[in-house]
Amino acid sequence: MIEFVDVHKSFGPKRVLGGFNLKIEKGETFVIIGQSGIGKTVALRHVAGLLCPDSGNVLVEGVRVNGASAATMRKLRGRMGVLFQSGALINWMTVAENVALPLSEHRRFPKKEIDRLVDEKLDLLELGDAKTKTPSEISGGMKKRVALARVLMSNPAIILYDEPTTGLDPVMSMVISDLIRQMQRDFNVTSLVVTHDMKSAFHVGDRIGMLYGGELVQVGTPDEIMNTENPVVRQFINGDLEGPIRAQ
């Protein structure tokens, strides 16, 4: 479904991904964990076609993303949604207008049908009351849910979550994590989640991979990661000061 094959990416002299390999199966939720600034979001952006690897390939549903034509990219993005860290809602639009955006801009459906779908998604995410509010009038957690509602409008087969729980309180983090699980359970969505929130990672992930030094140093089920002997992973999940990881 999603495959990284020997992906290398550098920004100037800084090597971010160096021989990154990963295969995510259909319907699976894969979580990439790692320090801030280590390259998790960079990996995710490669899947969305927002970044291009220096070498190697990124495949989505067997189609090469890097170097894909505009038409192929449009088709791929039609089956994909990204939940950005900030929510990336359009500030001058209401919640309802934001959620309707993927359909209203392309005028694929009549307005009545779009309104019905918006109400359906807002109800699913318990956002009915916020319909007429603007993003500046709602909380961080609500923004994430609105962004998720917008992603769901195009019924994506793949959802990419960029730090979905960052900046949220523990209860709201769990609400968002539950929603990620619900998406997989109810819609069989394939998900790639990047986070450094370990509680959320263990809750949502079918498999977890730790990114360190430009590659995944360990991939395993939540149980395998929790009981790992790998010193890098151990230090990271326990938040130890001593170990191979140095603060960046």
Partner: peptide, 11 residues
Amino acid sequence: DEIDALEMMSI
């Protein structure tokens, strides 16, 4: 990321 979000919606 709002511009990227638009790109992702093919807008």
